[in-house]
Structure formats: C-alpha cells, structure tokens
Design a protein around this nucleic acid. Sequence first.
DNA 1: TAATGATTGTAACATATGTTACATAATTTC
DNA 2: GAAATTATGTAACATATGTTACAATCATTA
Lengths: 251, 251
Amino acid sequence: MLQSLNNLTENTKIEPCNQNCSYCFINYSEVLIRNPLFRGLSNNEVGNLIRDIHHQVKTLHKNDILAIEGDSLDNLIIILEGSVVGDMMDFEGNILRIEKILAGNTIASAFIFGESARLPVTITAQEKTHLLFIQKEELLMLFTKNKIFLKNFLDIISDRAQFLRKKIRLLGLNTIKGKIAFYLLEMVKKSGSQKLILPHTQNEIAEMFGVTRPSVGRVFRELHNDRSIIANGKKVVILDKFRLSDLLRSD
Amino acid sequence: MLQSLNNLTENTKIEPCNQNCSYCFINYSEVLIRNPLFRGLSNNEVGNLIRDIHHQVKTLHKNDILAIEGDSLDNLIIILEGSVVGDMMDFEGNILRIEKILAGNTIASAFIFGESARLPVTITAQEKTHLLFIQKEELLMLFTKNKIFLKNFLDIISDRAQFLRKKIRLLGLNTIKGKIAFYLLEMVKKSGSQKLILPHTQNEIAEMFGVTRPSVGRVFRELHNDRSIIANGKKVVILDKFRLSDLLRSD
DNA sequence: TAATGATTGTAACATATGTTACATAATTTC
DNA sequence: GAAATTATGTAACATATGTTACAATCATTA
C-alpha cells in the first residue's frame, strides 16, 4: 500500500503534452474515436479537439492508486488503455465496489463540476493503465466550440446517473439473494447463455454488494438447493430464470 | 389513487405559453432568480432566456402523481411553487424515499439526456405545486447561447451526482443504527441545536432507508437506552454526538 | 369536546446476515 | 511438479432486522 503510493509519485508523474501534440492522436485515436464522448465526430474533428486543448497522459501500474475517495477532481479522466476499479471504503475496512471501468470510458465524469468537485470513489488500476486528463476549464471551452461534444457529454452523464440510480435501487430494496439473482441475470445477459463461468470470486461479489463472503456462499448454496441454479465453483448453470427474476424486487 | 390519476388528466393539463410569455416571468421570476440554474444572471438575462424558449407550466394538487419511475423524461422540470417527493417502489409495495424536493429546485436534472432518458423515481406532489417544463432541445439551445447557464447546469448535475453517491454509501455500508445516526446528525446540522423536533414520522424515516417502522422504533429505543440520545416521540435530545458519529461508517 | 385516525412503543417470534473457524479444492507461483 | 496462496464450502453461533400484533398516546377532524 505504502509502496503503491510511492509508485504513484515516481512512475505516474503526469506527462504534459505540448500545444500541438500528435502523440496522443497517433497512439490513442482508435480508443478515443470509440469513446462515447466523441461519437458522431470525424477523426479530423477529434484530432482538432485534442490538439487544441492542454491534455496530459498518466500511466498507472497494476494496483497503483490514482486517487482516494474525496480527493479533489479538476479533470475529465479518460481511460486510454487498461482498466481501473472504483471502491468506497469505510474506516473498518469494509469495501463497497462500485464499478470496474474499462478502456474507452471516462472516470467519474458526472462529478467534475459542482460546488465541491470530489472523487466519489477510490480509483485503483487493475492492470497497467494509461489515462488522459482534460482540465475542467478546457472541457467547458470544448462544449461551447462543439455542440455534438457537449451533447455527448450530457448523454454520458445521464447514463451515469442511471447507473447510480440502479445501484441505489439494488442496495436499498434487495436481500442478498436478490442481489445475487441480479448479478446472475446480468451475467446471462452479457454472455447470452444460461451456462456461466463467473468472472468474479465470491469475495469480489461480496464487495460489489457490501456483504460478507460466507453469506455469498450461503446464497449460492441455497439457490442450488432450491434448484434455481446448479453451482459448482465459478461454474453456474441457470435452471430457473423466472425464479431468479422473482427474487429481484424490481419494477 | 385512481382518483389522483384522473386529477392528473383533468386538472394538471399543461398550460402552454406563447412565444413572448410574460406570465411566467412576472409570476415566477423571484423563484427562478433564486434557482441555481440562473445563478450569476441578471433579471434581464433570465427573462430573455425564458421568453426565447417554449416552456410550459403544470399544476399539481396535493398527492397528485406527476409521473411514474421509468416514464420517459423529455423536459427539464423546475419547481416554481410547492414541493414533491421522489420514491422508488418495488412490486411488494416497499418504498424507498429518495428525496423531498422544494420550490426553486429542479427534478431529475441529471437524467434528462442519455440513451434512454427516464425518470429515476415516482414523483408525487406534497402540496399544491407549480412546475415549469423546458424541453430538452430548447435546453441544449440555451446552453450554446449562454455559457453561465451551461456551467450552472453542469454544477447542478454534479451536485446531484454527489447526492446519489452519498445515498449509495449510506445504503451500502451502514446498519439501521448507522442510518438513523446519520439522519439525526443531519438534523442537528440543519437546526444548529442538539434539541430536535423531528420533522418526520418513524414511518417516513423507515421509507428513507428502506427499513421497517418497528425497526426504526427499536433503534431509537436502543440509542435512548445506551444514553446516546433522549428520545420522547418526535422530541430528541442528542447526548453524545461522538457516539452517533462512531455509528456512522463513513470516511 | 368526542370520535377517529395516525403515531409510537414494544413484545414475541421468525428470518436474514455477520462472525469465526476450519477443511478441502483450485489456482498461482517458483 | 511441488509448494504456497487463494478460493470455496460449510458449520455453529451471534447479531441484526423483519413480521405481526396489540396497547397507549397523540393529532386531527367533525
């Protein structure tokens, strides 16, 4: 942990780009083009947008901590390569994992403005990760220069709000069994199959919902015993999708 | 309930304004001026902004339902007078009260854009309420015309995101005792006194946190018994603020 | 003011979840 | 491939919370 913080100081120093940087455009244009922030803009337009602003690139190594929940947030942060996770933690060490964020997405974009712009979560790199930073003021300038860019940003923010809404609903209205049912149904949706190899350990699932690992195991056992699923470690076969849906106290 | 829906159809019909409406400006400029959306703009500028766009005013009576969670959201909605509450409900009738919103504020502003712009909560009037609607497309136009307006909107959205973040933290990392402690400490902060007359029934508090009313009563009793508070109906005296803080698994 | 409805207090019991500990199996590292 | 580490399964017990019910008190209405 202390070592990670040291790494942060030494190896993740911001590399400022100059005014007409082509490094980012050449190296990351593919990623940026795919970013929802630039949807509907041509390569040329994206290039111009980036070149016109002061941007910075930062590299994180696996397990590096970019910032702590509550740190001030003055930039839009785009993941160029790699992935990070966002966690909430309390002083007893309990972890609530909010999200894993992949390359091509932005970090905490809904939190950049406001009377006190602070990071909602602690950001940790899951692997070697490259991040592009755009200062808030530059961002505002881009909004006035390009309406599509502005609309894209607003769309992203509202999608993020929907994500937070879903989280609140899940945490506020569901039992652990409901939460696991939600998780399994999401995995089915993602993989398009009732036969799953879960991409998370029970511990990770527990962190997603702010519960304990043995409780996660217990719920899997109960679902197995009442024939909603066949559970064998990470291998899960969904037997009764409707019964899972019924566990989910949704709309 | 059915009666409320009928009321919605008959008495809350949108009153469209014409192109140069001065009705809204004359009647609601005081409220609008105070709205964070118009912060830093002169009366003149606010008047011009409103007059230039197609806006509508809608009236709700007490207990009228404006819209159901999941309904499509095509407008920015500003509360001119009155107040509403936003609730999430599941199919078993459990209610999670997200917020009471007062005049001078906007409803679900963070959710207006996005790939599927939908209301995050069911909106119910607490009293007779006047709402101003600005269509999404008009809003976008206003952003390009007035940078201050755009910045204000972005600030509001980020404040809303912070609100949602806090909600998630509270729901995901706290026991009922922690949630009540949070509630009491918030009331102390609002009133500036350790002697409180709570503005909510136990049932309302239960809805705020998605728990049951007897559990709320139990927690009050336990806090009373361990001398953190003196609780006598809605009258609460905080005896040990630090012990309450300790119950709150916060940062 | 009396009646009615809403709120609060609380008990007994049931259910859900956390805690702790240990054994076994699976995966990763050297 | 062996050793070390991590993940999973699970039990026993403790604690937190929900459910149901009823009595007492308070607030509102006629």
